[in-house]
């Protein structure tokens, strides 16, 4: 009877009120059969990490269009690690220049999706890389 479901949090860190993309993604994840926790705009990394832990998500998907991803994304990973929740996978997306990719990977962001990435490719990545607990 047991049915394991993937839980994913879609979060927008920092001063960025443009959440159309995040909402489209939330909807797409719902249609992929995931349970999606959406926390809205203007979240601090601290709020995001705490919520991800309380909600027991498998994945945190960060969306950032403001240019502050170099600080915000790694900070979320760091906070999760501090709270012994490094098993939660963090991925990111938004307006992210190619030259920042390596820096984000090094900081523990597992994958980055930029404008043009298809919804299917994002769902496929999650389904391939996330083992359900």
């Amino acid at each position: 009877m047991g049915e394991r479901k993937l839980r994913i949090m879609v979060a927008k860190p920092g001063l960025d009120g443009h959440d159309r993309g995040a909402r489209v993604l939330a909807r797409c994840f719902r249609d992929a059969g995931f349970e999606v926790i959406y926390t809205g705009c203007h979240q601090t990394p601290e709020q995001i990490a705490a919520s991800a832990i309380q909600e027991d998500v498998d994945v945190v998907g960060l969306s950032c269009l403001s240019g502050a991803h170099r600080y915000l994304f790694p900070r979320v990973v760091e906070l999760l690690k501090e709270q012994k929740a490094e098993d939660i996978t963090v991925i990111g997306g938004g307006v992210i220049p190619d030259q920042d990719f390596q820096m984000l990977y090094d900081a523990g962001i597992k994958e980055i999706f930029t404008p043009g990435a298809s919804l299917d490719s994002i769902v496929e990545w999650i389904n391939t890389h996330i083992k359900l607990s």
Binding site: G33, G40, Q43
Partner: peptide, 12 residues
């Protein structure tokens, strides 16, 4: 079978 759980927005 998916869901959008959005109540948390108000509680952040």
């Amino acid at each position: 079978g998916g869901a959008i759980l959005g109540d948390r927005i108000r509680l952040q």
